[in-house]
């Protein structure tokens, strides 16, 4: 050929062309080999090892960049003060502590994919369905996992007794304000599996988050933060949930009889695999400090391959796998 590459014989074409033209058969051709190596060179159950760079944003209270193969996501946590007197609906006194965060809405995640991170998400566009559902999933996980102690987000004040109160009571502790955590998640590069990486980035940024010491100034009637780093406290996390996503590739189709259908479960799918696989399974696992493990979330849709046994096997594998301990 004119450009010096070796001329291919008449009816064959290079693998990139094969992948572009017919992505499904291309993936199938790889998987049906006896050893089942994926086009990206990984084993079926092989995850990409994430690299975490914590504290990379200087102007936020906590931040992390997580890179997982060609997916890179940056998460910044910014803390702002919400005065209790500004609340339109103050929390009722009998509200459970665990419900406080959700009632006040003081964890505000936002996922931004319109950064030019992948050709599927045009830069500058409003958040599409994927970005919005990622935002929702992160928020729902934050609420249902109760990883943040609401007392860490309270700014309390010891109120001295006034004359109207009973004289024998000591000073009362009242919550004057709350910390609101704005969690901004930006995808720098997206090559599949946004939810796992975004969640890992959120967790890493939380671990890195420092809240300044704040107190209520009675005379000025406002919250005052101490500028001294030595007085600031880190956000304590109760536990560290891990999200794991798999995509399922199947040859089953309503056009064919179901007997010869074959399926493969691909851990941590990349962008190419995500486009070809309709069915996905996301599991969020948490291990408590006392060693008990439980599931926080199971999300599966798009096909009929995953069965209850498969989830149990997946769980077993995952509990024993080193990937979990490496992440946690």
């Amino acid at each position: 050929m004119a450009n010096g590459t070796t001329a291919s014989s008449g009816l064959s074409f290079p693998r990139e062309t094969f992948a572009k033209l017919t992505p499904g058969p291309y993936l199938h051709a790889h998987l049906k080999q006896p050893s089942s190596i994926r086009p990206n060179g990984r084993q079926l159950d092989e995850h990409r090892i994430p690299t975490v760079n914590a504290g990379s944003l200087t102007h936020s209270n906590g931040s992390a960049v997580v890179r997982c193969g060609d997916t890179a996501i940056v998460c910044g946590v910014r803390a702002e003060i919400l005065l209790a007197s500004d609340l339109p609906h103050p929390p009722p006194d009998d509200l459970d502590d665990d419900d406080l965060v959700e009632h006040l809405g003081i964890l505000v995640p936002n996922v931004e994919l319109s950064t030019g991170c992948s050709p599927a998400h045009l830069p500058g566009n409003p958040p599409g369905p994927l970005a919005q559902s990622l935002t929702y999933r992160i928020l729902a996980l934050l609420h249902s996992s109760d990883i943040i102690d609401p007392n860490d987000l309270r700014i309390k004040h010891l109120e001295a007794n006034t004359d109207e109160d009973l004289p024998d009571e000591g000073p009362r502790q009242v919550t004057k304000a709350y910390w609101v955590l704005y969690i901004d998640i930006l995808a720098i590069a997206l090559d599949g599996n946004a939810i796992d990486t975004a969640w890992t980035a959120t967790m890493a940024a939380f671990q890195n988050t420092i809240l300044p010491k704040a107190h209520w100034d009675q005379d000025r009637e406002m919250i005052v933060c101490s500028p001294r780093l030595a007085e600031a406290t880190g956000l304590r996390l109760r536990d560290m949930p891990v999200a794991s996503t798999s995509a399922i590739f199947t040859t089953a189709s309503p056009l064919k009889s179901g007997d010869q259908a074959e399926s493969w479960v691909l851990a941590d799918p990349d962008g190419f695999e995500e486009d070809v696989c309709a069915e996905t399974l996301t599991v969020v696992l948490v291990s408590r400090r006392d060693g008990t493990k439980s599931l926080l979330r199971v999300e599966k849709s798009g096909g009929a391959v995953v069965t209850t046994d498969l989830l149990a096997r997946y769980y077993q594998y995952w509990v024993t796998s080193e990937a979990h301990s490496a992440l946690a």
């Binding site: 729902a140 249902s144 599931l295 926080l296 979330r297 199971v298 999300e299 599966k300 849709s301 096909g303 009929a304 995953v306 069965t307 209850t308 989830l311």
Partner: peptide, 8 residues
């Protein structure tokens, strides 16, 4: 066959 599963 299990077509969808959502648990929280």
């Amino acid at each position: 066959e299990m077509l969808m599963a959502e648990s929280a």
